[in-house]
Design a protein around this nucleic acid. Sequence first.
DNA 1: CTTTTTCATACCGAATAAGTATTAATAGAT
DNA 2: ATCTATTAATACTTATTCGGTATGAAAAAG
Lengths: 296, 296
Amino acid sequence: MKKNNLYYFCVLADELHFGNAAKKLHITQPPLSRAIQQLEEELECLLLKRDQRNVTLTPAGEYLKQRGDVLLANLSEMKSEVKKIVHGQKGELHITLVGSIIQRLMPYLKRFIRKYPSVKIKISQYTTREQIQLIKSGDADIGFLRGPIFARGLNLYDFYKEPFVLVTPRHFKGTVSKIEDFQQLSNMSYISFPRYLARGLHDQITRICNMAAYYPHVIHEVHQLDLIVRMVECGLGISIIPQCGLDGLLADIRTFKLDFISQQSVISCYFNDLKDNPVLGNFLKELNISKEVHKK
Amino acid sequence: MKKNNLYYFCVLADELHFGNAAKKLHITQPPLSRAIQQLEEELECLLLKRDQRNVTLTPAGEYLKQRGDVLLANLSEMKSEVKKIVHGQKGELHITLVGSIIQRLMPYLKRFIRKYPSVKIKISQYTTREQIQLIKSGDADIGFLRGPIFARGLNLYDFYKEPFVLVTPRHFKGTVSKIEDFQQLSNMSYISFPRYLARGLHDQITRICNMAAYYPHVIHEVHQLDLIVRMVECGLGISIIPQCGLDGLLADIRTFKLDFISQQSVISCYFNDLKDNPVLGNFLKELNISKEVHKK
DNA sequence: CTTTTTCATACCGAATAAGTATTAATAGAT
DNA sequence: ATCTATTAATACTTATTCGGTATGAAAAAG
């Protein structure tokens, strides 16, 4: 089917008058006549009955008009949807995050969803380690993970920083408000997590302990922050975790904010090349992340 | 959107290789490159990511490919449906008929429906007079009506001929087997129908009576053949009707086939110009009506 | 019978598409 | 590191299509 012939025909079918239809199409009448003839040739049928005075649709023309209108509407709708995709107003955004961070992200997410209602958000919880993989492979668009992280070729932005917190069972009677206070903890058990899950975070905590000349007696390793808190609650030991690990948890424990230590836990967000998913650009805008990001 | 650009794109999206896609499209590679560029310009977006070795779809391209395939399939389906219409294999056929004729028509109709299952049949019962109007105006395609008829500009075919029948109440004791026998009827009431409903038929019957030197004493006029039969059954009079007026009726009457009279009742079918509805042509073929029809 | 309306045809120039030859860039091989 | 092969883009030419002007034909309106 030629360029605009179907469109020409549909307009003509509305007007049932070559001259008027041509005017509407901003062309002259002869090209329109020929276009319709071509269409009729291609479909091997008469679409219009011209009896020198009146133009009427044949049954085939009637049908073509009906279907053609739908088809053309479909075409233009498709075009506009494509444009939406390009401008990141439609599509999918796959976000991965470490569990404890969802509450901090929520306000941004809410704003984004209100602004881009046609974007389908996919959120999954993964370990720091897994997220790096997903983003590198393009299966996720942006990951919120606990830094610091060493990943080549990914864009980095420090989304959020917060102090570490020492968590102890309720029955712990001391106070920890300066670095020397760590000494009281020497004979207590320590609950940790496997280093491979989040090397940066693990090393950061180790550094804190070293600074305080505190050498934790690790007896348990668990995989989730909230499980650490539960272990502490049961009196099985103490731990140092990022503040947000306590978000939304009701636990009968004591907490000591380690804000007298310069080390802070950082939630970084990592993402791949912007061009891969236009939605990502708009999401970053909502996070107030400028496009000039640091590459490692 | 230009001529084939969408199709070009969809094939390219299948191949993800300009050279191969061009081969599949029976064009060379440069025109394809340009076609895609044009499409991208029109949609103001990148549809493909070319990294010198591999071609991959962007999200927008992915979407366009999906919708585009559907759209193109729709387009070609539309074309083939149009062709079906032109060849009378799809569409509507509006048949009108006088009630008494449906049983004679049924075998043809059955065959036609089996052969053209996509054709929607519309049958309505009308008087002779009304049918002429409907066919002239194009609201019906073909009408089966009781002739003879004088209608300018319509195509005519004598579909079926049958003898007239004299119907009398059960208690009539005579016999009518030759023209002189009509004399016995002189003193009986006659049940007729208004002349304007079917002038030709009415006049034919009048002619029969004149021939037999029988001058019927009309006391009732009713509008339907079956009502005439019922009136006769009740002993209210006699009547002369076409044979098929008795089809499917169980009536306690006496009947005398008037086959000693040359006059026959004719069911004519009338129809408008063939081009108005391609289905009509196929229907006429099923009726074994050649295309060379008599025009009045 | 003339005029007007309206679609079709003939012809021309402009725009667009396709082909050929070549370039640029990169991946893989030597 | 250099060379070769692959692949898409670019430059340029040719062919096709498209739209415009002028005109014709047929029938309705005055």
